[in-house]
Simulated scan of single mutants.
Amino acid sequence: MVAEYGEARDIIGVIRGCIKHVTTGHSHHVLKLAYILGLRVSTNHRRLGVGMKLVKHLEEWCKQKGADYAYIATDCANQPCINLFTQKFSYTKFRSPTVLVQPVHAHYKPIGSGIAIVRIPPHVTAKVYRHLFANAEFFPTDIDAILSNKLNLGTFMAVPKKLLPKWNPETGILPQSFAILSVWNTKEVFKLQVKGVSKLTYACCMGSRLLDSWLPWLRLPSFPDVFSQFGVYFLYGLSMRGTNGSRLMKSLCTFVHNMAKDDVGCGAVVAEVSQQDPVRVAIPHWKRLSWNEDLWCIKKLADLQEGECERSEMSDWIKSPPSSAGIFVDPRDI
């Protein structure tokens, strides 16, 4: 939706929204969820109620489409956005996942010995994800559409090489020890750019990159060229099992880093997971580029009809504790 002004109908504001069916983390319960994103108002028309009108109209559209809940995701430091949704529209602070960022270096990173990386077909991945994330929150029922999207670069599983002779990926049966993730190419949708840094910071960053390019065997943790436009690879569907799960996940993330290194214009590999998810500690990242708390706020839109058997489950979702199975972050929402 857009906000227009004057006879010339100049666009002064915009907001986007989508609706999908997702799990709530409670006994495979599925509901209709609206995601609100991309609220922007031109600088000259702020503090005039434009943002509020856009949100109000989009919420009405979501209700007409039958959405049970609506949610937004924002940086925990974005206080104006938080105040708008929590104070003006009664959204509740709901979940605070962690965003982990790994810059792409100029050298390849070594994958752990004794580990095999296997590409999993989309139809098998869908079956595996429905099993792994059955009790997670925000898992979309149209996972097949995500996996078949042209922005999806594939799903990969890391397993000990000694298990390969006894395991067939096509069966969908999981090995005793594994790590799995999918890769989403966001640089085909949007690009980022860092501006306003000092000359000294710029020189240090570019110098480290140059040195890493000249002497890749040193494996220096160089900084990518984020001062020009760059894109990122987003990791989703991250899960691990078994005694070697953490090591396998680290190797899998290394594999994706090397993929990104070969893709010109990809500056970082990013993942978002719940703070309680064990996979969090296994994902390589730079603390200075990551942030511990993204903020998801949620609001109930629909009132259930009296007598519906699922009334208590839906009413309790906002107040419920985080699912032990974690959060599934839909890459389409990034």
Rank of each mutant, 00 (worst) to 15 (best):
E4Q: 10
R9K: 15
D10W: 04
G13R: 08
C18M: 14
K20T: 15
T24S: 08
H29S: 12
V30G: 02
L33V: 11
L33N: 13
L33F: 07
A34G: 15
Y35N: 15
L37P: 01
R40C: 09
R47M: 09
G49E: 11
G51E: 14
L54I: 14
E59G: 12
E60I: 12
G66M: 03
A67I: 01
C76S: 15
C76Y: 11
A77M: 09
Q79D: 10
P80F: 07
N83Q: 11
S90L: 09
T92Y: 04
R95T: 14
P97Y: 04
V101E: 02
P103K: 07
H105L: 09
A106I: 08
K109D: 00
S113I: 02
G114W: 03
G114V: 07
R119Y: 02
H123Q: 08
A126V: 08
K127P: 02
Y129S: 01
R130S: 06
L132Q: 03
F133C: 03
A136E: 07
A136N: 03
D142W: 04
I143A: 03
D144K: 05
L147E: 04
L151R: 02
N152K: 00
A158Q: 11
P160H: 11
N168S: 09
P169K: 07
E170D: 12
E170M: 11
E170F: 10
T171G: 02
I173S: 10
F178E: 01
I180T: 06
F190P: 01
Q193T: 13
V194T: 14
K199C: 09
L200C: 07
T201L: 10
Y202F: 14
C204K: 14
C204L: 15
M206G: 04
G207V: 09
R209Y: 14
S213T: 15
R219N: 14
R219E: 13
S222T: 09
F227V: 02
F230T: 02
S239W: 05
S246M: 10
S246Q: 10
R247E: 03
M249R: 01
T254N: 03
K261P: 00
V264L: 13
V264Q: 12
G267S: 06
A268Q: 11
A268H: 03
V269G: 00
V270N: 01
A271C: 05
P284V: 00
H285P: 02
R288K: 12
N292C: 06
D294M: 12
C297I: 14
Q305C: 02
Q305Y: 04
E306G: 08
G307S: 08
C309W: 06
S315Q: 00
D316F: 03
S323F: 02
S323E: 03
A325M: 02
G326D: 09
F328Q: 11
F328R: 09
P331M: 05
